[in-house]
Design a protein around this nucleic acid. Structure first.
Lengths: 340, 340
DNA sequence: CTGAAAGCGCTAACAA
DNA sequence: TTGTTAGCGCTTTCAG
């Protein structure tokens, strides 16, 4: 038996394909009896509309695209876990599907975007982890496809985004360590091509200045957002003639690496060297000692972004929204205790 | 300027839509010059094929569907993290997209499946976390849509799956604790509706028997695969007149909960009460003390499943494959040390 | 080697 | 209230 289509129903009931379409579509210009007959037949045949056909006609896909940054097998950042879950939940609620591209390399990234967008696979896109002069944003702006962003760029912000206030966040964390009596606070910073690296470093320096602490270039080392990178940077920092007494990092994963290195060197995290992360991924609470960090409402942000995106996809032409999240400092044992 | 289509290229070059299609499609019955001209024009216009149209015609979607079990905001199991990453990577490699549905409730789950499948949104599906008489499998079997499964069911296995050998795995872990001198080994088991709960419990009991240890029903408590559930069960177990000296769990998340409860009660994980998990999620290594567990090659399994699925979608009609993974025991500090 | 014509399943003007 | 006609963008016979 062939797959049920409007045509098969049309044949079975004697009505035209158009009428069948209208009856099923819930239009009110269909005779009640006719509609009933058609609905019955449709149910009998187990009809469900062919999405591709409908979409080809309507030029819509009911799908939201999300391209993940390159991920490595085991070190997947839980950050994205929650983010995807948030997006997925938001999309489901709004009746959209989520098309996920796990992009493997930076080289193919733009290609992936182009594929998704220009082939009309998605009605809108969600972007994460913005970079300087982010080409993805330039591209999407150019295509006119609705999109929302977790993060900002340096250029004019004529698009809708939500972002953590990185300046305030890093300032808060730095200040926390200063108040705990630290004077040599290192920062294992995010890779500089990421937009938020700038804001965070700004916040770091602002806090130092506010407390009249000197900025020491030796204490600022950029790395990758991975545990391994955290380990490497920690080694460098601890090998300095004057090592820091506190180390902050670009994300929690890096902080884990830093903690491990500290411990491997026979020092105690917290008491000997304080550590602060960023993101507050679930493990931050479980690791030993607990990691002081900045909490990011990742899941909720994902959901919120989708809500905004759906509005845009539905033709809401109101100007772009810019939402800055206030940081929340989570103090745990890796802060150690107040010093003299 | 209108979106580039075959028609716009056809107009610009003077060739028919048909010829343009063939030239772009790489057919060899096109004059070299013609092809060059068409390709040039296509590039100039920035043409990319409209997927919906192509798929409507070919009746394919180049998309793999994956429906995630209900997830809660912050407690997303890292297990799925890696699994999705593996599937995504496999799909990308094979030129497929991944359609992800974060299903929120058990009630709507089948509905979600039906939507994806019958509307022709996906060419194949990946299933995780099988249940007894899993209705999803019954449904997919019935629709003839290609699918692969991480897990088994109780019924005849006339479908392709990969699964951890749960019997062997849990036996291995139980035996490990027995060899460490434990005689009262509790098991905080997975929820019984999940297929793998059976296998694991079987393995648990087999190990006890093999070592002539009595099975104590008080020591077997089923729960949810969450940290909270682990905490609750640990409380129960530790409140027994004769509490266990070792506790195994359905997954690492539960184990974390157990560990926390042990510590909150002023006992030491490992020395006082040994703990064993399942999955070997990244945190298992970082938590304090490190968690003894069964390693599951989650990412690789995801990739492998996609490979199998792609074969099926490409019309490979060879009989279903059944792959059972051998467990690997990871011993960490939560095992404590050998006892008298 | 190239083009005309048909059709994938659906929706939407426009008539009747 | 219903049907006719077109057409979304693409592929695919079938002729030339």
């Amino acid at each position: 038996m062939a797959t049920p289509t409007l045509k098969t129903i049309s044949k079975a009931t004697g009505f035209s394909v158009t009428t069948v379409s209208r009856a099923l579509g819930g239009y009110d210009d269909v005779n009640e009896e006719t509609r009933r007959a058609i609905l019955d037949e449709a149910r009998k045949q187990g009809y469900t509309p062919n999405l591709n056909a409908r979409l080809l006609q309507k030029q819509r896909t009911q799908t939201i695209g999300l391209i993940m940054p390159a991920t490595s097998p085991r070190l997947t950042d839980p950050f994205f876990n929650e983010f995807v879950a948030g997006i997925g939940s938001g999309a489901a609620t709004a009746g959209y599907d989520l098309l996920l591209s796990t992009d493997m390399t930076d080289t193919t990234e733009m290609e992936t975007y182009r594929r998704l967008v220009s082939r009309g696979r998605v009605d809108g896109m969600v972007l994460v982890r913005t970079r300087h002069n982010d080409p993805r944003i330039a591209y999407l702006l150019h295509t006119k496809l609705p999109f929302v962003v977790f993060g900002r760029t340096d250029a004019a912000h004529n698009f809708t985004y939500i972002d953590m206030d990185g300046v305030a966040a890093q300032r808060l964390l730095t200040q926390h360590f200063i108040e705990y009596g630290h004077r040599r606070i290192a920062y294992a910073a995010p890779p500089p091509h990421l937009m938020f690296a700038d804001y965070r470093i700004q916040g770091y320096r602002a806090a130092l200045e506010a407390h009249h602490l000197p900025f020491d270039a030796d204490l600022l080392i950029a790395g990758a957002l991975t545990e391994r990178s955290g380990r490497e940077i920690a080694h460098q920092l601890l090998s300095l003639a004057q090592p820091p007494t506190a180390i902050m990092t670009g994300n929690d994963l890096m902080a884990f690496g830093v903690m491990r290195t500290i411990q491997e060197r026979g020092l105690r995290v917290g008491d000997d060297i304080a550590v602060g992360g960023f993101d507050d991924i679930p493990t931050a609470e479980h690791i030993h000692p607990g990691l002081t960090t900045i909490h990011q409402p990742i899941y909720a942000t994902g959901q919120r972004l989708v809500t905004l995106l759906v509005q845009m996809m539905n033709g809401d032409a109101s100007p772009p929204r810019a939402i800055l999240l206030e940081p929340e400092l989570i103090i745990r044992a890796s802060s150690g205790s107040q010093r003299a």
